[in-house]
Amino acid sequence: MRTADKVIEIIAEQAMLDTADVRPEHSLDDLGIDSLGIVESIFAIEEAFDISVPFNANAPDDGAFDISSVAAIIAAVEALVAEKG
């Protein structure tokens, strides 16, 4: 499965939506995912891709990991996966 599809699947499951309803331009807030939901989604991403995501819930907006939209998260995950090699 492509990285993007897997990330969307994880976010959709967290939001309790169909994957078709999760658009790249959506923010997590748009999808009704709260701070606890973000932490859980990041855990699921780490488990799925065997990567470590730099994310601190105290400063969700200024980390190395951009969570401002679904597209941003996909790009950040792709970068971490590529880094892993």
């Binding site: 932490v39 855990f43 601190n56 819930a57 105290n58």
Partner: peptide
């Protein structure tokens, strides 16, 4: 180890 690992998971630790 377990006591800190559990807190770490919540991502609220400095």
């Amino acid at each position: 180890f377990g006591g800190i690992k559990a807190w770490e998971g919540l991502r609220v630790m400095s």
